[in-house]
Amino acid sequence: MKRAGFTQRWLPILLLMPQLVIIAVFFYWPAAYGLRSSFFLQDPFGFSETFVGFGNYLTLMRSPSYLKSAGFTVIFSVLVTFLSLAIALILAVKADRVIRGAKTYRTLLMWVYAVAPPVAGVIGLIMFDQSWGPLMDFAALFGWDFVLGVNYFDTAFAMVVVSVWKQIPVNFIFFLSGLQSIPRSVREAALIDNRSASGRFWDVTFPLLAPTGFFLLITNITYSLFDTFGIIDTTVKGEPGNNPMTLVYKVYVDGFRGNDMGGSSAQSVILMVLVLLMTVFQFRLIERRIHYT
């Protein structure tokens, strides 16, 4: 069999060039520069620098505050991903059954999607405000003396709530369209086989939703690791203090606030490697179990 292809060698290269140039300029070049500066300690203005080898990495590994924010990042990401997926799935399954007024109902659920993370953070700040936040009064009903920005746990709690709230609508839209693309015939057949609604959900609906779920899992992990930056930034109000911080926010705090170029470059490199590993893991192990129709 003859392979279809280009007759000239330069044409495919030419066609690829714009994309390659963009990747080179906006990813490879900065990444290479970041990798290089992670081995140096550099004057913020760039006048002088000292080669320190893996010194910046060793400093991080020995730093209790870095390890603490690594631990927080794991807990935070797991909670945000799990809660925003689970709540959105419940809402989608319920909304799928609604027939009358379905459109209004769905629109209301999707609304929050239009809110940008920093704005979500500001709304969270208002809700959790120390002296007049409505959620503070709600917490007080349970005898919970909630103080944002003072108590580590309370601040973390507020960050998780706001991040989950912000992410539910996106997941909801995808789950709902995933549910609606499941053929009627399959559902009806399942109805004959199994009388239990929850049994039908786990045996039929859930596996058929898996491709959507997998896509959402990846986007939600990315969201909880990276896009929550704006929420965390507004919640800590410019003073990191003893507030919880994710690793991405710590890169910003040390690099852009503290002007420690070498240390924050090392942190970015660590994050880059983590994301690489996670991507490989997700596609190698999880995607194999998912069947696309």
Partner: peptide, 11 residues
């Protein structure tokens, strides 16, 4: 103590 923020302590 009302946290590390300036305004929270001034309010």
């Amino acid at each position: 103590w009302y946290g590390a923020g300036w305004d929270d302590n001034q309010a």
